[in-house]
Design a protein around this nucleic acid. Structure first.
Lengths: 339, 339
DNA sequence: CTGTTAGCGCTTTCAC
DNA sequence: GTGAAAGCGCTAACAG
């Protein structure tokens, strides 16, 4: 169906020169007769010749493609992250191939394999919720395949890792709630195998400890990101003999849903219950009451992850530590309890 | 840095057989000695051999990659669309390479060129806002390069086109507003070079006409998707001698922002001004008041676009008409004016 | 059942 | 300044 594209060979044949000459005309550096060069360039223009990246890749054993594996594009955070990655990759002449794990370990594994088979030059990864076993990465890590983890990182390997400062964000948020007078702060904790979720719980606990507040296990809910459970655990919290006077939700989307349920149950936000989300989604300023949230610099995290990989691919540098990207508490009405 | 991967040649050398035999062992069909086959497979396993897609692509002149160009991954609609595309592509053994135009004609043009150079087998495209000239597509269309447009389609070419039924959605939404007694319905119209925005305006006008309501040019705002302008045009509308009694926003995000501004100005929603968004974002049910919105089946649109392309690539079928995917009006409080 | 050969589109020595 | 030849990893037509 598709017409065969023009190749370097076509150009050579028409001009009665060799393919090497055409190649040289195209690439510059080498000695070449300016006249020949002009002729080639003219024909290239006319025939709309486009170099075949595949052939180049095979030859150079470098595709200039980086593979990206993220949980979901629908997640604003990862969507932004992708933009940051693409921005930097483009700058370095790289393309990006994106796979979504949809939080499945199996799909993640297949994606790694497929991307490696596709000869991507490196991988940028945020782990799926399900992933507790890292063999699929170990395999390529051993072969010194360049990998950068971000956000949902894997600590088992000495690779660059870029993370939002969830610990600090969570700590600050908890302290803010304590500041406004909250004493029973509930924390909806995500899956603890995920680095970021674990850090948030740690930040929360650290804040309680620092301010000499007791840890009440009833106020810590271990959940996942599925929306199905929100109503259930929200009820559980509200039905406690002494309900919480503040809640840190797992993200803004569920915070907003929780607010809805809390209002149904006739609790006042923030006076009865203050609430804080994570991620600072674009709508959070417009819900009622406007939602306090912790903002992570998704774009910047993407950029940094890509930068790390680009530098590694260029053999420029290789850092294996965790790099923290600052998070910021955006205070709005939902947490401003009078006291 | 990276260790050289195992090739078919390595396997052949170790087993003292030819590469063709290895290839045959791997690919099945041809006659091959079961013992040889077993040996090969065992070694493949042991050496963690992965076929090199690049070599295959060069050989077969088919990469099994489809290129996707969308405005923004941050846009929920396109994010979902991507998932639909990937779902079907994966099913057919294809991979997906995603580019964002960020609404820039220039970037879109470069992306087309880059994807074609990368030898993608086909293209799935939603145009950028800026794109008013289609030469970059004309060039490859002439060469019979398979393209499918969706959502922001280009009518100039006989390619498959998948669109959400914006006309019908907009018509129904407008009629709903008329039903609840609105007489001065404002329509925030997107860039009219974009097919979907144009359809929406047409649906709106058709509904007014059908119900014998006058068309007031003051109530039609021509805008773009940038949030910077929301406050300005909302004020323009509210400052009219007779402000509108209903507003159809350009999407849910801006509808939510408009609601915020409208409430600041002490208008009641929906009694003074009813409001409807487009896209039915996940939060729309949780804002105050919950937002009526038109839902498009983004996932389904992505799936259909990918299906069309896959079928074309398999030479199975080739349809060039526009395919409409149904939209649905989700009625919530923001439009339920008492009357 | 298996090996040999050629070639996908391109670059890059090595000659001339 | 240019051409011939080899090769990137793989498959497929053709022998045998």
């Amino acid at each position: 169906m598709k017409k065969a594209p023009t190749t370097i060979k076509d150009i050579a044949r028409i001009l009665n020169i060799s393919t090497s000459t055409v190649s040289r005309a195209l690439n510059g550096q080498a000695d070449i007769n300016p006249t020949t060069k002009k002729e080639v360039l003219a024909l290239v223009e006319k025939l709309e010749y486009e170099p075949n990246h595949i052939a180049l890749s095979l030859k150079q054993r470098k595709t200039h493609i980086v593979g990206v594996i993220i949980p979901e594009t629908e997640n604003q955070f990862y969507a932004k992250t992708i933009s940051g990655i693409q921005e930097i990759a483009t700058e370095y002449g790289y393309n990006v191939m994106i796979c979504q794990s949809h939080e499945s370990h199996e799909i993640e594994k297949n994606s790694v394999q497929m991307l490696v088979s596709s000869q991507v030059d490196g991988l940028i990864v945020a782990l799926s919720t399900e992933t507790k076993n890292y063999e699929h990465f170990a395999k390529i890590y051993q072969k010194e395949f360049p990998i950068v983890f971000f956000d949902r990182i894997c600590e088992a390997f000495d690779t660059p890792k870029i993370i939002a400062d969830n610990y600090d964000g969570s700590l600050k948020a908890t302290e803010h709630l304590i500041d406004v007078g909250c004493k029973r702060i509930a924390h909806i904790a995500g899956p603890q195998n995920l680095f970021d979720c674990h850090q948030r719980l740690k930040g929360y606990l650290a804040a309680l400890k620092k301010h000499h507040l007791p840890i009440d296990e009833d106020l810590i809910i271990y959940s996942n990101f599925r929306k199905e459970n929100v109503r259930e655990y929200t009820s559980t919290l509200l039905d406690l003999p002494t309900p919480p006077d503040a809640i840190m939700a797992i993200n803004d989307a569920t915070a907003i849903e929780m607010m809805h349920i809390i209002k149904e149950r006739k609790f006042k936000i923030p006076d009865d219950i203050a609430i804080i989300g994570f991620n600072n989604d674009y709508v959070s300023g417009y819900v009622d009451p406007p939602l306090t949230s912790i903002e992570f610099q998704a774009l910047e995290i993407g950029r940094q992850a890509a930068s790390m990989l680009m530098k590694e691919l260029a053999n420029e540098s290789f850092s294996t530590g965790k790099k923290l990207v600052k998070s910021q508490l955006i205070i709005r009405k939902s947490s401003l309890k009078k006291h």
